[in-house]
Design a protein around this nucleic acid. Sequence first.
DNA 1: TTGCAACCGGTACCCGGGTACGGGGTTAAC
DNA 2: GTTAACCCCGTACCCGGGTACCGGTTGCAA
Lengths: 135, 135
Amino acid sequence: MNGELRSGEVAEAAGVNPQTLRYYERRGLLAEPPRSLGGHRLYPPESVTVLRTIKAAQRLGFTLGEVAELLDLGRRHAHRPGLATRARAKLAEVESRIADLATIAATLRTAIGSGCDDLATCAADPACPIPFADR
Amino acid sequence: MNGELRSGEVAEAAGVNPQTLRYYERRGLLAEPPRSLGGHRLYPPESVTVLRTIKAAQRLGFTLGEVAELLDLGRRHAHRPGLATRARAKLAEVESRIADLATIAATLRTAIGSGCDDLATCAADPACPIPFADR
DNA sequence: TTGCAACCGGTACCCGGGTACGGGGTTAAC
DNA sequence: GTTAACCCCGTACCCGGGTACCGGTTGCAA
């Protein structure tokens, strides 16, 4: 009897909504825990760490699907090094997203600097720097 | 009779799915056009410009709700200058998003550099640079 | 005039990441 | 032994930005 936790306690400790535990279980991110005689989930304390791990990976930009894969990869110890490779790919994604946003920011700055005051007017004005053309 | 367009033609010209026209109409982005006797929408050619304008604003990071507001603002000519103010606010949003992503990218680089190979292992290792702590 | 493409409205579904609700069963403190 | 708080499961809903499907009209050209 090593301090099993009830779902509400785990959720509280990990800073997560209790419903989220069941959701992660359905998504395969959190192993199905043992149950009490009455059917209540009884989590080992390590579950809190798993939840924190999931949240950390999410903050790094991984989707829940990718997090599931990363956790699985670690468990099955296949194809190492897995995390580093995926982190590199994710970094490339993030950098590309930053580049896109930088372009957007630059366009916004140009639009602000050129005194555009009305979208409809700008769309009709060939001198407007907002790129109305498709693709 | 100045070349009214049918929905498919407008969609084609603006590079948009025909369903999207009805969707934008529901969202208040595209005015309800006149109809033929049989009930088919007959768009004035300007609608294509409106659609391109919407798409341009979307590319600048505005949501459809915000685009609706911007178009409305221009039509009602209230509270000028509206676009510039909103563009500045959007620029701040975009810059903040870039800053977030820069932090994420930096963390990913650190994780890659420190040879993390498995999420579960890292979570247990106090020397791991991935921020597992909440908030 | 006939035949088929295009259009109509309404509704349902997709993605991701959850959250809420409702009716019933369990646990634990008093 | 009561009672409140918790938990169960299934299902529906939220956000944003569309897309797909349906059966039933219309438009237009050959």
